[in-house]
Amino acid sequence: MEVIQPILAHFNHWITIFLLVAGLYVVVARGNMIKKLIGLSLFQTSVYLLYISPGKIFGGTAPIIDDKIEVYSNPLPHVLILTAIVVGVATLALGLGLVVRINEVYGTIEEDEIFTQEDDEE
């Protein structure tokens, strides 16, 4: 139990780290440009969890001041992540836009096939 306790106490961080590494792995390991972007999105999304989960305080409530309430959760991470989500969406949209254009001019979205075309040109 003493071994498991610290692991369970930080289970949110374990999930974050798993998603983070899984996302990064997909970016590195996959040659399909859409799959790479999915990995990148997963990688970015894991960071949302990194910010949000420590902001939650057990028994805490929304930060609206009231005499009866003494414990509040930290609202700052939510606001930050709202911004980060917008940034993430913009990045994904631009990335997908580029992939559409790449598909138009190269006829494929597999990186290795594109590189073979490039080698033929040179």
Partner: peptide
């Protein structure tokens, strides 16, 4: 090839920026 370079930079740049916010 500009499109390809832009895509590759987007992947690398986003990883960099995400590392920074981590």
């Amino acid at each position: 090839r500009s499109l390809l370079s832009a895509y590759q930079y987007l992947i690398m740049g986003t990883i960099g920026a995400t590392f920074y916010i981590i």
